[in-house]
Each structure stands twice: as C-alpha cells, then as structure tokens.
C-alpha cells in the first residue's frame, strides 16, 4: 500500500466529515461526521508515523481516541438532554442561545 493512497483516503474522509458537519441537520449525524474527521486525522498520523519510522504519531492517535471517547460521551449526554427538553434533535431548532 502506498502512502499516497493513505493520504488521499484521509483527505476524502476529512472532507466527507466536514460536509457532514456543515450540512446535515440531525445532531447525531453531525457528531458522527465529527468523529469521521477525527479519524481521518488519525489515519494521517498513523501513516506518517509509519513513513517516518517514529512512534510519535501513534502516541498522538491514542491520545485523540481517548479524548474523542470522552467528548462523544459528553456530546451524547447533551443531545439526550436537548431531546428531553425540546423533543427534537434538529440543529436548526437550536437558535435560542444566539444572544
């Protein structure tokens, strides 16, 4: 497997996640897209680590996975709370905090 292929894969995944965050209306899907972006970065780190023969990249990845887990837990908790409060998980409806 060439490293170029991995970089392109990472890039495509990142753009997919980006579009998902920007365009989708369901908060759950937005969170999934966010995870996608994080994992695109993870792939890039791992491939760079292999390419450069250092372990630094992989250490970063483990860090990111850990934090992402925590972040997702909080985000899902918030989503659950939002759903309980307003009965919806559409991001358009969350404009009440604009000022």
């Amino acid at each position: 497997m060439s490293y170029q292929f991995l970089v392109i894969l990472s890039f495509l995944l990142f753009v997919t996640g980006m579009i998902g965050v920007a365009m989708r209306r369901n908060i759950i899907i937005v969170l999934v897209s966010l995870e996608l972006m994080l994992n695109a970065v993870n792939i890039l780190f791992v491939s760079a680590s292999k390419y450069l023969h250092t372990l630094d990249g992989q250490i970063f990845v483990i860090m990111i996975i850990t934090i992402a887990a925590a972040e997702t837990a909080i985000a899902l908790a918030l989503v659950a709370k939002i759903f309980k409060t307003i009965g919806l998980v559409k991001i358009d409806d969350l404009k009440k905090l604009k000022w």
Binding site: M18, V21, D92, K95, K96, L97, K98, W99
Partner: peptide
C-alpha cells in the same frame, strides 16, 4: 450574520 445558526458559522469558517 449572527443568526445563531451554527452550521452557517461552520461553513463560513471553512
């Protein structure tokens, strides 16, 4: 411009 729509902010940021 500041309508509170987060996705507009993200799009502009991107």
């Amino acid at each position: 411009l500041q309508a509170g729509d987060m996705q507009v902010y993200i799009t502009l940021f991107l």
